[in-house]
Amino acid sequence: MTTELPGTGAPERTARRGPGRPRNEGLDGQVLAAALELIDAKEEVTAARIVERSGVSRAALYRRWPSLTALTAAALDVGREMPPAIPAGGNLREAVMDALLGGATAGSGPVDYPEERFRQRIRLAMSDRSLQRMYWTSHVSRRRAPIVNALRAGIEEGELRPDLDPDACFDLIAGVFYYQLVVRGESFDGPATRGRCRAALDVAWQGMVAVTPP
């Protein structure tokens, strides 16, 4: 995948807005919709195809997206939302379980984020490390914050072991979900799949809770 838009000569970076006209969100939506059509159709995302499908000029495309990698990462995230913070004071274990298992497609995204797009995202990311890193930096790393913060609070309050690394714990429990789709080829709609996820999370949680002195 090209890591910069042809003609920009700009390295991969996060786009920054300077003074001038406000960004046209309508054009942004057209560009993202065009990119998604290509992704869902398993076609290569190119500047020429985006311009043709969206009706947005090359100049406008170049102004909005520093690279095709950044555009593809943003398109792959359409339909996903930032999960809410986990409130303090409740049952931490059940709150984390609900955050991970509560959705109809827990772990892969909300109902309006098709599982097929999730699988396409995995395929594209695994074949392009720059896209993988971009998607991690701009989207995935932010969405894990509510659970990581809740685990960190559990450590500070003494409910979880003081030697735990919250980020490593999240990697452990999130890996349960990815294994079902990527390795086993299962769907999260199946009760057996969700049951395996809950059982695995139960085992992980037992290793995370603080040990009460005898």
Results as ranks from 00 to 15, higher is better:
residue 147 I to N: 00
residue 147 I to R: 04
residue 147 I to E: 07
residue 147 I to P: 02
residue 148 V to K: 10
residue 148 V to H: 10
residue 148 V to F: 04
residue 149 N to H: 14
residue 149 N to V: 06
residue 149 N to L: 12
residue 150 A to H: 06
residue 151 L to W: 02
residue 151 L to C: 06
residue 151 L to V: 13
residue 152 R to D: 12
residue 152 R to I: 01
residue 152 R to Y: 03
residue 152 R to T: 15
residue 152 R to W: 07
residue 154 G to C: 05
residue 154 G to E: 04
residue 154 G to K: 00
residue 154 G to I: 02
residue 154 G to Y: 02
residue 155 I to D: 01
residue 155 I to H: 00
residue 156 E to K: 08
residue 156 E to S: 11
residue 156 E to V: 04
residue 156 E to R: 10
residue 156 E to L: 08
residue 157 E to D: 14
residue 157 E to S: 14
residue 158 G to F: 07
residue 158 G to V: 05
residue 158 G to A: 06
residue 159 E to M: 11
residue 159 E to I: 11
residue 159 E to K: 11
residue 160 L to G: 03
residue 160 L to Q: 04
residue 160 L to N: 06
residue 160 L to C: 03
residue 161 R to Y: 01
residue 161 R to W: 00
residue 161 R to F: 00
residue 161 R to C: 01
residue 162 P to A: 03
residue 162 P to C: 02
residue 162 P to R: 00
residue 163 D to P: 04
residue 163 D to C: 05
residue 163 D to A: 10
residue 164 L to T: 08
residue 165 D to R: 08
residue 165 D to T: 10
residue 166 P to S: 12
residue 167 D to I: 07
residue 167 D to S: 07
residue 168 A to G: 13
residue 168 A to I: 12
residue 169 C to A: 15
residue 170 F to V: 09
residue 170 F to R: 03
residue 170 F to G: 02
residue 170 F to E: 06
residue 170 F to Y: 15
residue 171 D to G: 04
residue 171 D to I: 01
residue 171 D to A: 08
residue 171 D to L: 05
residue 172 L to Q: 14
residue 172 L to H: 14
residue 172 L to E: 15
residue 173 I to L: 11
residue 173 I to D: 01
residue 174 A to N: 04
residue 175 G to Q: 06
residue 175 G to L: 05
residue 175 G to P: 03
residue 175 G to D: 08
residue 176 V to P: 01
residue 176 V to E: 10
residue 177 F to I: 01
residue 177 F to G: 00
residue 178 Y to L: 13
residue 178 Y to T: 11
residue 179 Y to L: 12
residue 180 Q to H: 09
residue 181 L to S: 10
residue 182 V to H: 07
residue 182 V to Q: 10
residue 182 V to T: 12
residue 183 V to R: 10
residue 183 V to E: 13
residue 183 V to W: 03
residue 183 V to K: 09
residue 184 R to H: 14
residue 184 R to A: 15
residue 184 R to W: 12
residue 185 G to C: 13
residue 186 E to N: 11
residue 186 E to T: 04
residue 186 E to A: 15
residue 186 E to P: 01
residue 187 S to Q: 12
residue 187 S to P: 02
residue 187 S to W: 05
residue 187 S to N: 13
residue 188 F to D: 02
residue 189 D to C: 12
residue 189 D to I: 12
residue 189 D to K: 12
residue 191 P to V: 08
residue 192 A to K: 13
residue 192 A to R: 14
residue 192 A to H: 11
